[in-house]
Simulated scan of single mutants.
Amino acid sequence: MQNIKDWPLFIKICFGLIFLALVVAGLIEIPKLSEQQTSEQSNPKQAATELVNVDIIVVSDTAKPLENVEVRLVSKGAPEVRKTNTDGFVQIDIPARRDIEITLIKEGFKTARYTINLNNDPNRTRTYYLKPQKPK
């Protein structure tokens, strides 16, 4: 590699401008990043406990709404249990930034397990299907 002193003036100016732009960008962005980290560290429980209302509809494989389906959601601690109404509808509150496992149970139907992640799929009503158990 050549000695930098031997480079043409135009090349030296280009490298100088690129270096200056990187320094300015770093001086602008680094305080923003450290400020963001500080705010996340000061409120970790608030972010974890923020609840979002989720609508669930449970239907049979023939698309008929299923009443009294037990909807169990597991996040931390004991499972929370809800039951669907006559329209197969139930509302649950789940933490905004976590995967939540739900289990759907109804006599005469196969138990079904699903995972809800609001980061991937935020604002919509979820419809889940239960398949009837085959007679023995």
Rank of each mutant, 00 (worst) to 15 (best):
M1V: 07
M1T: 13
Q2R: 05
N3W: 00
K5I: 10
P8E: 07
L9H: 07
L9N: 05
F10A: 09
K12F: 04
K12N: 07
K12E: 05
I13S: 05
C14T: 06
F15H: 11
F15S: 11
G16S: 15
G16I: 07
L17V: 14
L17F: 11
I18F: 11
I18N: 06
I18W: 02
I18C: 08
F19A: 15
F19Q: 12
F19L: 14
A21F: 13
L22A: 12
V23I: 15
V24T: 05
A25C: 12
A25L: 11
L27M: 11
I28G: 03
I28M: 07
E29N: 12
E29C: 08
E29Y: 09
K32Y: 10
S34V: 08
S34C: 01
E35Y: 08
Q36P: 00
Q37K: 14
T38S: 15
S39F: 10
E40P: 00
Q41V: 06
S42N: 12
S42E: 14
N43C: 07
P44H: 05
K45A: 15
K45I: 14
K45Y: 13
Q46I: 06
A48C: 03
L51R: 10
V52K: 13
V52L: 06
N53I: 04
N53W: 03
D55H: 10
I57W: 01
V58G: 03
V58E: 01
V59I: 13
V59Q: 15
S60T: 06
A63R: 05
A63D: 15
P65E: 01
P65G: 03
L66A: 03
E67A: 12
E67R: 09
N68Q: 12
E70H: 08
R72F: 03
L73M: 14
L73Y: 14
K76H: 07
G77E: 11
G77L: 11
A78C: 01
P79S: 05
E80M: 13
E80H: 06
R82P: 00
K83L: 06
K83A: 03
D87V: 00
D87C: 02
G88R: 02
F89M: 04
F89N: 04
V90Q: 02
Q91H: 11
Q91Y: 04
I92Y: 03
I94W: 05
P95L: 06
A96D: 07
A96G: 13
A96F: 09
R97N: 11
I100Q: 01
I100V: 15
I102C: 10
I102A: 02
T103N: 00
L104F: 08
L104T: 10
L104R: 05
K106Q: 14
K106P: 02
K106D: 04
E107A: 09
G108P: 07
F109S: 09
K110H: 09
K110R: 09
T111C: 06
T111N: 12
A112E: 15
A112M: 12
R113P: 00
T115S: 12
I116E: 02
I116V: 13
N117P: 02
L118F: 03
N119S: 08
N120I: 06
D121R: 10
P122V: 02
P122N: 07
N123F: 14
N123D: 11
T127S: 06
Y128D: 05
Y128P: 08
Y129F: 14
Y129T: 15
L130T: 09
K131C: 00
P132Y: 13
Q133N: 14
Q133K: 14
K134M: 13
P135E: 13
P135C: 01
K136I: 10
